[in-house]
Amino acid sequence: MADLSVNICGIDFKNPVIPASGVFGYGREYEEFFPLEKLGGIATKGTTLNRRTGNLSPRIAETPSGMLNSVGLQNPGIDHFINKELPYLLEKNTVILANIAGSTPEECVQVAEKLENTDVHMIELNISCPNVKQGGAAFGTSCEMASEVVSKVRKATTKPLVVKLSPNVTSITNIAKAVEDSGADAVSLINTLLGMRIDINTRRPVLRNNVGGMSGRAVFPIAVRMVWQVANAVKIPVIGMGGIASGKDAIEIMMAGASAVQVGAVLFTDPYAPVRIAEEINDFLDSKNISSVRDIIGTVKPW
C-alpha cells in the first residue's frame, strides 16, 4: 500500500483525487455510492453571491469521447451554501474546496469574504466558466483582468486560494504567471474547452446556449500539455484535470506536474470513478515499488 497523501498549500489530502466542480453538486447525491471521506477532497459546485437560475435546456450534448455542457452556473447562492451545505460537507473528513464565481471582481470578493469566517479549507476561484455571458471566462482570458480579480480576492481571504484557469486562451502559462504574481496559492486546470454541436436536420445548435464547455477523455492530451507547460512556468502547485478517467491518466498528468487531480465527466459513466482512480493509482505505485505518490509529481523526462 503506497502513501497516497499529498499536501497543497499546507492542506493535507489523504489521496490526490478530487471530484471537479460542477459534476458533484455539494456531494449528497454521490454518498449513495461511497462515503465521501474516501475522497482526497471535493470541489463544490461553482457558487455565486446570489442564486443563479442557469441556462435553458438542452444543457448537455455528447461528443466523440467527450461531452459539452452549458449549465450556466445554476446554484443557490453563497448564503445557502454556507448555511445548508457546508456544515454537512465539513463533517465528511475530506478537504472542501469551495468553488466560487462572479460576474464582476467585486462579486467574487464578496463571496470570498462570506467564506472567510467559515471552516472551508480552500477557495477555488473560477475565472474560466465558459457558460455565462458576463464575466466568468472573461476574467480568465486576459492577464490584466485575471490579475485584477485575483489580487482583489487575495486581499479578501486568508484561505489558500486556488485559481481555476481557462484553456480557451493563447497562452495559459502567461495567465498562470499573472495569477501567481497576484497572490494565487495554486492553480487548477483545465476548465472546459469551448465547443459546439449542430443538429443538421434542424440546423439548430444542440445546446440552447449555442456553445458550451467540452470535457471528457477527448480533452485529456490537451490537459496534460497545459499542466506540463504551466507547472514549468510557475512555482505554485498545479491541480490537473481534463478527461482523467483512470489511475493511469492520473499518474500521467501528475508526472506532467500536477500535485493532485480533479475528475469530472468520468463520473457520469462510472459514479465510483474517484474511488476507483485512487485505488488504481495505488496499484500502479505498488507495481513499480514507488512508496509515495508524491515521488511521481513532475517526474516526466522530456526529450
Binding site: 453538486g25 445554476q74 463520473l267 459514479p271
Partner: peptide, 13 residues
C-alpha cells in the same frame, strides 16, 4: 438530455 442522472450536475433542467 441528461448526464449524471442523480441531481448533481444540473444538466437536465
Amino acid at each position: 438530455r441528461m448526464a449524471c442522472g442523480i441531481g448533481a450536475c444540473l444538466g437536465c433542467a
